[in-house]
């Protein structure tokens, strides 16, 4: 809604000002709803726990909680684990999904249609409903309690294939024809033309798979048993449940340590994300 741009000049300026105040007031109310949990978290992360447990929301501000989180908990190790897991997953997904998407768009082979529908069908099957046999599979593969257990099952997805396929379909037919005439084989066409041509979708998929991997909670909880491999989501759960004292200050600081980097990346990359997201969905 373009509430302001069409303002009539004839309106008295006081009414306009009133309207503007109203608009800002509404914006601020909505903003408070969205950010107050953050504010509360950030604020209390600087307060001494003794104050918080009295129910007070003021006191001497300090970085003590952050210091405690960094020195007495493996929070950095958790972050490191998550970054390793999410990066490996992302790279693998981009490679495998783009390859399979390429096959569906540019290769003619028997059973293509059938396979494509089979791929689509997997999108109906929630991973959450398959954890039991998957747990047994990774157990028999000897992957339990290792980075691989959180990467291998997610190295390729039907969703990623589908998304990149949609993007590869946009590549002009003439380009492929020209490449055929030039004598490019499929590897060359895939590597030199398809990937650069669809880079926006590929980066979107990368961002998406990174975030999805970063947010994994149930699977790592079932398959990791040591702080050396535990990703940050389960690390936080671990910290929260092992604190019998309700050390709220430290817990909030740990949560902030985890959320601040993602917020910074999000804010800087916001315009980019927006473009990518809308491309990925429907307009």
């Amino acid at each position: 809604m373009q509430l302001v741009t069409n303002d009539h000049v004839s309106k008295p300026s006081s009414a306009r000002r009133l309207k503007k105040i109203g608009q800002y007031a509404f914006l601020i109310v909505l903003m408070l709803i969205v950010v107050s949990p953050f504010l509360l978290g950030f604020w209390t992360s600087f307060l001494p726990t003794s104050q918080i447990s009295k129910g007070a929301l003021w006191g001497k501000l300090s970085l003590a909680n952050y210091w405690a989180a960094f020195t007495t908990t493996p929070i950095l190790r958790y972050l490191f684990n998550s970054i390793v897991i999410a990066s490996l997953t992302t790279v693998a997904q981009v490679v495998f999904c783009s390859m399979s998407a390429y096959a569906f768009v540019f290769l003619k082979f028997k059973g293509r249609k059938f396979l494509f529908y089979a791929f689509l069908a997997t999108m109906m099957l929630p991973f959450e409903a398959e954890v039991i046999p998957n747990f047994m599979t990774v157990k028999s593969m000897g992957l339990l309690n290792h980075f691989a257990v959180m990467v291998v099952p997610f190295m390729a997805t039907a969703f990623g294939t589908f998304m990149l396929r949609q993007s590869f379909l946009q590549i002009p037919k003439e380009l492929k024809e020209a490449a055929d005439i030039e004598g490019l084989n499929h590897w060359q066409f895939y590597y030199r033309i398809t990937l650069p041509y669809s880079r926006i979708s590929i980066v979107t998929l990368a961002a998406y798979s990174f975030l999805t991997s970063w947010n994994q909670y149930l699977w790592p909880m079932l398959t990791t048993f040591s702080d050396n491999f535990r990703p940050v989501q389960d690390g936080l759960r671990q910290l929260q449940s092992s604190e019998t004292f309700n050390n709220w200050g430290m817990i909030q600081a740990s949560a902030c340590i985890v959320v601040i980097p993602t917020l910074i990346v999000l804010f800087i990359g916001q315009h980019y994300f927006k473009a990518g997201l809308n491309e990925g969905s429907v307009k």
Partner: peptide
């Protein structure tokens, strides 16, 4: 920017913020 902020929140962080609230 602020409206999109919760996109950067992962599940355990959200749980901790709300548990406190």
């Amino acid at each position: 920017t602020l409206f999109s902020a919760t996109m950067g929140v992962s599940v355990s962080v959200a749980a901790i913020f709300w548990l406190f609230a």
